[in-house]
Amino acid sequence: MVLLQLDPFLNELTSMFEHTTEKGSVWVTLKRSSLKSKVQMNKMPSGGETEYRCLIRATDGKKTISTSVGAKDHQRFQASYATILKAHMTALKKRERKDKKKAAENDKKEGVAKNPKRA
């Protein structure tokens, strides 16, 4: 497993989404971690503050990448992450309205007509 910097991680994640459009899945795991092994943890002086970060792992079943964010940079990361998700989760259904390709224009008119609920 490779621990990447934030931007390379986001790039890799994007290509994972692109590779799995036809088949396959992408898993993204978030976990709180001190990024230290148990042995290292035991060696730390007790009572000392351990710094925790949010570990982010992503896999497409073949390859695994990871990165971590701390309290300072998580907001910037989560914004970019959200953008990537929005751009690639295109197969989800948009509000159970079917055959709308047929009448994209009508759909717009309907949307306007449906909104005002006053009598």
């Binding site: 799995t20 088949k23 992408v26 976990k31 690639h88």
Partner: peptide, 8 residues
Amino acid sequence: YVMKYRNC
């Protein structure tokens, strides 16, 4: 926390 997305 795990998210799994399957595009196909």
